[in-house]
Design a protein around this nucleic acid. Structure first.
Length: 721
RNA sequence: GGGCAAUUAGCUCAAUGGUAGAGCGCUUCGUUCACAUCGAAGAGGUCACUGGUUCGAUCCCAGUAUUGCCCACCA
């Protein structure tokens, strides 16, 4: 046994042994007798990484946490499935490939055409996938590769089309002209959750509008204005009655406007009066809907003004804005300009442009539309009783059927549902699941397979990537077929992911599973924090503070990287990491190795019957007590404390005290005493190696195989107790 | 505007109703003895502040301050 633990040489070899054993697959475990046939299940799906490139340190944290749960469950005799896969990440992947191609060849997707472009994306996705698989393996993740899935593969596509059709036929999915977040750069809609707000400084104009003064940062939207809105309780405008008509001199001449009273107006903001642009603003759209007002388009999909803008038609809004302000000024309509007004501008999170709200024909999932669950397994939703997606999503968590940990995120979840609007699921991008709807003449057909007959044209839109992710807990198990896997492993035991995708993903899974299966997708949700640098800053390429888990694994071993991501951060809190911290845990791995080496060097087959001292018994009892504590912590998802206890017992007590005290007795002439010392040492070590396995699987597996009586055995399927 | 969290050693963070812990850093000493990727010893903290509950509060409660995050909104 070498002085040093050579993780570089060993980790890949160990992973290969695990893979070849087949024990990542629960069926093999049953077949080979390491798991009982009727054992309880423990199932978890891997949150599929996007095929946009490499795994980052956040993925490593996720893999470490999940692997601890999975290895613990497996060692406890559960029928354990950890199902891996990757996500096609529609818009993110398309944006990435588009930009790569543009940089390299100066071409955009339209230059290449849909087929060729998709071929390129697939090529990129494949490479990215292979890379991800390599990295997942490198971290020691005990996932069942035989069941690997991709959100865009054939089986998952069938699930998507089936889900779409069922929701479409129920009327939950509908096509409608509603206001959406339009990204003029990517030329697609994005959902509310995909927006990011950035502060922007812009001039803020106060304009004379008949007897009123209105404020705006966007004069370019004002061409179609013909309604002026104020709060019904606003005393200042009491004399103006709802529905009153006024003649007003405006940008391109006199217009007739109608007074509207609506409670959405904030009396304290500006003058308490505003004009509305229903086509280009969500709040305005809602007001217009409430009062049945006309909606007019002013800006086109590319951000250019339409003929309604008169002389400004065809001009891009960014260019037109100052010119319009000038014209207003010349006409004496501009009362005041506030420079450097700070407001938030919505931007497409996925590398897109500034959002221009537009009214568009899109596909939506109606979250307030009533339907009936035939055979509800969700507490709080009765079979045959009317419910809505919103109500159902709430009920699943409210009844404690799904537990979200840490518990504070339950509130966040409820709050999000309260604010939820219909989910826009269509995207005008090419990479993704094509909407399973076909048109011919005036006819529309929605089906799992294309309609028979000539001349049908499929809807050109694709689905929001989260539509397919929402099905992940069961599409990966074979749904819509009632497979053995599906019956055995669904609902899954735990869903573990970062709190940043609680809405995007966790909530959508509850929605999909609830409607399609009348059941919950998972029993528990454990949310981990975001990984930050030693100063608590977000890791980003521009800050240059990223820590690459692969590079760190090469340098210090995957076990060290895993421990550094687990220990020292409380559940749900952000995880701080630094190279120093990783080095610290590398030292621990070396410590474990050396202590084991010492135990082995001092082990011999002694015939004498060991005569244990009171101290020996006390130590062995200590280790049992430790196991109890560690088990409790793991079951409560408190991996930090479990790891911390193990670390300190091993180092401070076992290595520094116990071994030192046993040294004399290990050379004793009293054979019975010597045997007792040896036994105590090996037993304590074995127990600790076992307990450490979920946390640092590589070094412990290697040591296990070297311990007496373990030749050829695999620690990963040893019994925990 | 609403909500959530944090505030503990030089730095980054844990834990706990009974005069505080770790990693890294720092100081001193120590390598024939598993390990210098080490060991031993040590310095370093009115646990943000103010009240309250309690025999006792860093921990529970209320308030204040600062920081961070989430949601809504900014016409």
């Amino acid at each position: 046994m070498d002085t040093r633990y050579d993780y570089q040489a060993l980790e890949d070899k160990i992973y290969k042994r695990w893979e070849e054993s087949g024990f990542f697959n629960p069926d093999v475990c049953v077949k080979k007798g390491v798991t009982k046939k009727d054992a309880k299940k423990f199932s978890i799906v891997l949150p599929p990484p996007n095929v946009t490139g490499n795994l980052h340190i956040g993925h490593a944290a996720m893999l470490a946490i999940e692997d601890i749960m999975v290895r613990y469950a497996r060692m406890n005799g559960k029928k354990t499935l950890w199902l891996p896969g990757t996500d096609h990440a529609a818009i993110a992947t398309q944006a990435k490939v588009e930009s790569l191609i543009y940089k390299k060849e100066g071409k955009n997707r339209h230059d290449l055409g849909r087929d060729e472009f998709l071929r390129r994306v697939e090529e990129f996705a494949k490479e990215s996938h292979d890379n991800i698989v390599r990295q997942v393996k490198k971290m020691g993740s005990s996932v069942d590769w035989s069941r690997e899935a991709y959100t865009l593969d054939e089986k998952r596509s069938l699930a998507v089309r089936t889900a779409f059709k069922r929701m479409h036929d129920e009327g939950l999915i509908y096509k409608g002209a509603r206001i959406v977040n339009w990204d003029p750069k990517m030329q697609t809609t994005v959902s509310d959750d995909e927006l990011e707000y950035v502060e922007e400084k812009a001039p803020f104009y106060y304009l004379k509008f008949g007897p009123f003064v209105i404020g705006t940062a966007r004069p370019e939207t004002k061409f179609g204005d013909k309604y002026v809105v104020m709060h019904p309780d606003d005393a200042r405008y009491k004399k103006h009655k709802d529905g009153e008509k006024l003649e007003v001199e405006w940008i391109n001449g006199p217009i007739t406007v109608t007074v509207i009273k609506d409670k959405a107006i904030d009396m304290k903001f500006g003058t308490g009066v505003m004009t509305i642009t229903p086509w280009h603003d969500a709040t305005d759209f809602d007001i217009a809907e409430r009062h049945g007002l006309d909606k007019e388009q002013v800006i086109d999909s590319y951000g250019k003004l339409l003929p309604i803008a008169g002389e400004f038609a065809g001009m891009h809004i960014s260019k037109a804005r100052p010119l319009i302000a000038e014209k207003l000024k010349a006409k004496g309509l501009l009362k005041k300009t506030e420079e450097d007004y700070v407001h938030n501008v919505a931007v497409n999170q996925r590398g897109g442009g500034k959002i221009e709200p537009q009214i568009k024909e899109q596909w939506f999932i109606g979250v307030n539309k009533e339907f009936v669950l035939p055979k509800s397994k969700i507490k709080g939703v009765k079979s045959g009783e009317k419910t809505t997606l919103k109500k159902m999503m709430k009920a699943a968590v409210k009844g404690n059927q799904i537990k979200i940990l840490p518990k504070r995120f339950e509130k966040v979840y409820f709050h999000w549902i309260d604010n939820l609007r219909d989910w826009c699921i269509s995207r005008q991008i090419w990479y993704g699941h094509r909407i399973p709807v076909w048109y011919k003449g005036g006819k529309t057909y929605c089906g799992i397979n294309p309609p028979k007959g000539e001349g049908w044209i499929q809807d050109s839109d694709t689905l929001d990537t989260w539509f397919s992710s929402g099905l992940w807990t069961f599409s990966t198990l074979g749904w819509p077929k009632e497979t053995k896997d599906f019956l055995e492993f669904h609902p899954t035991s735990v869903l573990e992911t970062g709190y940043d995708i609680l809405f995007f993903w966790v909530a959508r899974m509850i929605l999909m599973s609830g409607y399609l299966l009348c059941d919950i997708p998972f029993e528990k949700v454990y949310l981990h924090g975001l990984v930050r640098d030693a100063q608590g800053r977000k890791m980003s390429k521009s800050l240059g503070n990223t820590i690459d888990p692969l590079e760190m694994s090469e340098k210090y071993g995957a076990d060290a990287v895993r421990l550094s991501l687990i220990i020292g951060s409380a559940p749900g809190n952000d995880i701080k990491i630094s190279e120093d911290k990783i080095r610290g845990y590398r030292n621990f791995a070396t410590k474990v190795w050396n202590a084991s080496r010492f135990a082995l060097l001092n082990y011999s087959e002694i015939k004498a019957k060991p005569q244990f001292t009171a101290d020996d018994k006390k130590r062995l009892a200590e280790v049992s007590a430790l196991k109890k504590k560690v088990s409790e912590h793991i079951e409560k998802f408190d991996f930090n404390r479990a790891g911390d206890e193990l670390y300190h017992y091993f180092w401070d007590v076992f290595a520094d005290k116990v071994i030192e005290l046993l040294k004399i007795r290990l050379n004793s002439d009293n054979l019975r005493d010597r045997a007792a010392a040896q036994e105590t040492l090996i037993k304590m070590l074995k127990e600790q190696i076992k307990m450490l396995h979920p946390f640092m699987p590589f070094v412990t597996e290697e040591i296990w195989g070297l311990l007496p009586g373990n030749k050829g055995k695999l620690l990963m399927v040893e019994k925990w107790t």
